[in-house]
Every structure is written in C-alpha cells, then in structure tokens.
Measured scan of single mutants.
Amino acid sequence: SPEVQIAILTEQINNLNEHLRVHKKDHHSRRGLLKMVGKRRRLLAYLRNKDVARYREIVEKLG
C-alpha cells in the first residue's frame, strides 16, 4: 500500500540524513536521497488525489 511505502521511504530518508551529517562529501548517497524524496513526494501526491483521509492520517503519523 502507498502508506507502507511512504513509511519505509521516510525511515530510509531519516537514516540517510544522519549518514550525510557525518559524511558531508558523500554525493553518491545524496543523489540517492534526492531520488527517495522525489519518490515519496509522488506517492504522497497519489494518495492525496485518491483518498484525502488516508493522506491526512499518514502525514499526521509521520510528521
């Protein structure tokens, strides 16, 4: 489901952010981070168009 995919991506994004705080010059990982953020944004847009209630619920849960 989109909610699960968004939750997994959010966790991976948070982990990668911590990694990049330590390894500032790791541009390869930064590119992966940007791809993940874009994918999460697309999934959220899809969910917002399909079911606003589910969209609001996941945004509330994940912050």
Rank of each mutant, 00 (worst) to 15 (best):
H23R: 02
R54K: 14
I6W: 03
M36L: 15
L34H: 09
K50N: 12
V22P: 03
D51H: 04
S29Y: 06
K39C: 09
L47K: 00
V52K: 10
L43Q: 01
R48P: 00
G38W: 14
L44H: 00
L43Y: 02
R21F: 04
H19Q: 06
V59Y: 04
R21S: 08
H28S: 14
S29N: 05
A7L: 15
A53D: 12
K61A: 11
K24R: 10
Q12S: 06
R56I: 13
G63S: 12
A7P: 02
V37L: 14
E18R: 08
V4Y: 15
G63H: 13
N49W: 13
V59L: 12
G38L: 14
V4R: 10
R42W: 07
Q5V: 10
E60S: 11
N15F: 14
I58W: 06
H27Y: 12
L44M: 05
V37Q: 07
R48C: 09
H27N: 10
H27L: 10
D26I: 03
A45K: 10
D51G: 02
R40N: 01
H28Q: 12
V52N: 11
E11F: 08
H19Y: 14
L33V: 05
R40H: 02
G38H: 13
Y46Q: 12
H23S: 05
I6L: 03
G38R: 14
Y55P: 01
V22D: 11
K39L: 14
L34W: 13
H19A: 05
R30G: 03
K35L: 12
I58T: 04
V22G: 08
R31Q: 11
S1C: 14
N14P: 01
L47H: 00
I8A: 09
V52F: 14
A7Q: 09
R31E: 11
R21Y: 04
A7H: 07
K39A: 12
R56M: 14
K61I: 11
A7W: 15
K39V: 10
R31S: 07
E18G: 04
L20M: 05
S29P: 03
V59N: 02
R41M: 09
K35I: 12
H23D: 05
L16R: 03
R54P: 01
E18Y: 06
Q5M: 11
E18D: 08
G38Y: 14
R30D: 05
R21H: 06
Q12L: 12
L20Y: 04
G32K: 15
Y46P: 00
L33I: 06
R31W: 06
S1T: 09
R41T: 07
N49L: 13
G38Q: 13
N14M: 08
K35P: 01
S1N: 10
I8S: 06
N14K: 12
E3D: 05
R41V: 06
E57P: 00
Y46E: 15
V37C: 11
E18M: 08
I6F: 03
R54Y: 04
V37R: 06
D26Y: 04
V22Y: 10
V59F: 05
L44Q: 00
A45C: 13
L43S: 00
Y46A: 12
M36S: 04
S29I: 14
V37A: 04
L47R: 00
K24N: 08
H28R: 12
K24F: 08
N15Q: 13
I58A: 04
R30C: 13
A45M: 11
E11H: 08
N15P: 00
